[in-house]
Design a protein around this nucleic acid. Structure first.
Length: 212
DNA sequence: CAGTAACG
DNA sequence: GGGC
């Protein structure tokens, strides 16, 4: 029996222009987590507030030219970390490489991310349905890397009222969406408690985008 | 509404 | 768990 025939890396379509690359980051997971630790040492993750005044349940930091921030003034990209007043840490090469490779695998040959949002989920943390729409160029896709504990991703449509499909995500999975679904509503359900050998009691999500 | 609460 |  040739198992090569059955262990293919064919991207799984989850929508029009939206693909799940199962285990795509598995070979470089250690390097990614090491990079996340380095970024977090320079720009510690913190819980942001939404414009509506609610504290988000995830802990957020960023690297790259731009960092995603949210406060009473709204959602936006900032060149400096508002906590330190300094520029965000540079995007570590292992992070950039996996994002560019995943985008290419999904058919986006010229993805050039200038920001990586790092979200840490502890048990009980979640992310409600939302659109990534603070970027300037919607022709560039979104690349999302899952590390650590599994979670259920929700991928909806272009309207909040569209019922999202549920996609279980595991350590090493990578999602790429763009084109017709670039503005699709998405989120994740509440993280359940567990222990992952590499991340312990948490899940880490890396979201790569071209902000400008 | 990148949110919570209340309610079926 | 899903919609407002």
């Amino acid at each position: 029996m040739n198992h090569e025939l059955f262990s293919d890396d064919t991207p799984l379509p989850i929508g029009d222009g939206a693909l799940l690359l199962r285990g795509f980051a598995l070979g470089v997971d250690d390097a990614l987590l090491e990079a996340v630790d380095a970024v977090s040492a320079e720009a510690p993750a913190r819980r942001l507030c939404t414009p509506g005044g609610h504290r988000m349940s995830v802990e957020t930091t960023s690297c790259g030219r731009w960092g995603w921030v949210s406060d009473a003034a709204g959602y936006r990209y900032a060149e400096c970390d508002p906590v330190s007043g300094r520029a965000w840490p540079a995007m570590p090469e292992p992070l950039r490489r996996i994002a560019v490779a995943a985008a290419a695998r999904a058919g986006h040959a010229h993805f050039d991310p200038d920001t990586c949002l790092i979200n840490r989920y502890a048990p009980g943390a979640r992310m409600g349905l939302h659109q990534d729409r603070n970027e300037h160029d919607f022709s560039q896709p979104i690349v999302s890397v899952s590390l650590g504990l599994p979670i259920v991703f929700q991928f909806g449509g272009l309207q909040r009222s569209d019922r999202p499909q549920r996609v279980p995500l595991a350590h090493g999975d990578v999602l790429v969406w763009g084109g017709p679904t670039r503005l699709a509503f998405h989120g994740v359900l509440t993280l359940k408690a567990g222990i992952h050998p590499l991340t312990g009691a948490s899940r880490i999500n890396l979201t790569f985008r071209r902000a400008r």
